[in-house]
Design a protein around this nucleic acid. Structure first.
Lengths: 213, 213
DNA sequence: AAGCTTATGTGACCTTAATCACAAAGTTGC
DNA sequence: GCAACTTTGTGATTAAGGTCACATAAGCTT
């Protein structure tokens, strides 16, 4: 039955959770599946669940008022969307977009449980604080890059991060996609990639990039 | 004696705190005073205290690796530095700079108390979460601006924010200071301000700007 | 293989903003 | 009032990156 599966997910993705918390969450969480490209969360949407990612990969974007959107970070299995916890506590809406990259499974925990979980389970409390801290730091790094770095450096950092987060040197990205993530334009990215290829940092193929470091 | 003063500060700046929490903090907190220009926190520094601002104004900067620094937001009385809470829980160092704008008074609460406060005092718990949430949102807005807006719009937003946060239309800022905060250059800011003056949005004086909206 | 679609390469041009080089005011100290 | 300093104004130049207009090229489809 479904509970066994949930418990299994919790044990493997969140091994730091105390047994009582695992049991509690097993009871309260519901499984949700998303296909690649599905939105877990969208601009202006009210959060009623805190999402724990147990399988797949989620990409987080900041929505620009003018339509463009800006890639911030990935959420891996074993992590939660900080925003789904932050916003939920105040029933506020967020201005971010969370999109599944691969087929993704999350555990949805009703917002209404947050207080009780925080109070009763030390490992949950640490998890929430740590999630905030990490995401906060991540945003600070994003700010660094946009305000202090030129596009060539940002592109290199972006590819390095893709490599780290996806665990492969074969990055399945088109130039247009990268441009979108970095809020730049396709031509600029193409030219910079060519330069990187000349410096033997990448090998360019159609629809993917071999990242050499 | 000092405790009476601390309690007074807590009551007036943090009226939402429950009485037991006020008493607890009155015992544990120590007063610290800073003069305009003093650093409350600096890059790479280990946080041993959570700082609650009770008087004055604190300016938070992100430090660029290359030396420049970038204004993020103000911390008003009644608020805490989210980073001093986040970093402290993990004993990590931060890469931000907090500078007193005016003469500023803060209550310093030892990091070691955080867990107990979170567990025992509901109003503290809400305060911490709300602080995180607000700062997170603030960073998202910062990201928006740097990545989606041109300098003229960012300047207008900056002046509006100064007006809001400082509660006056007479903004005591030189063009060079503004340029530094926005990570731009003095000449660019001067030219943009001139344009704004022509549009009757500001009146320029020496060493200050009259903000007309 | 012909034709379509998607991805990439590239030159020309334009805009924004950074930088340099001064000039001109306004302020302060003496 | 006269230096010395701070702040602001302004033109000229440059560089980064965005935009436009195509040309190729690589995969699919049939």
């Amino acid at each position: 039955m479904s509970n066994t599966i949930i418990k299994q997910h919790l044990l493997s993705s969140f091994p730091q959770f105390e047994p009582a918390l695992i049991d509690k969450l097993t009871e309260e969480a519901t499984l949700k599946d998303f296909n690649a490209g599905d939105l877990l969360m969208n601009t202006g949407q009210n959060m009623r669940f805190t999402m724990l990612v147990v399988k797949g990969l989620v990409k987080l974007y900041r929505e620009g008022a003018d339509g463009g959107d800006f890639f911030m970070y990935y959420i891996q299995p074993g992590n939660a969307c900080a925003l789904s916890m932050i916003c939920s506590t105040k029933q506020e809406t967020s201005e971010v977009k969370a999109m599944a990259v691969d087929q993704t499974t999350v555990l949805a925990i009703p917002t209404s449980m947050m207080d009780e979980l925080m109070k009763s389970y030390k490992t949950w409390y640490y998890f929430v604080l740590e999630t905030y801290r990490e995401r906060f730091e991540e945003l600070l790094v994003v700010i660094d890059h946009i305000s202090f770095k030129a596009m060539d450096e940002r592109l290199e950092f972006y590819l390095e991060k893709q490599h780290q987060d996806l665990g492969t040197r074969k990055l399945m990205l088109t130039h247009a996609e990268i441009a979108k993530d970095l809020n730049s334009s396709r031509e600029v990215i193409s030219r910079l990639l060519k330069k990187m290829e000349q410096q033997q940092k990448v090998i360019l193929h159609r629809s993917y990039i071999e990242y050499l470091k």
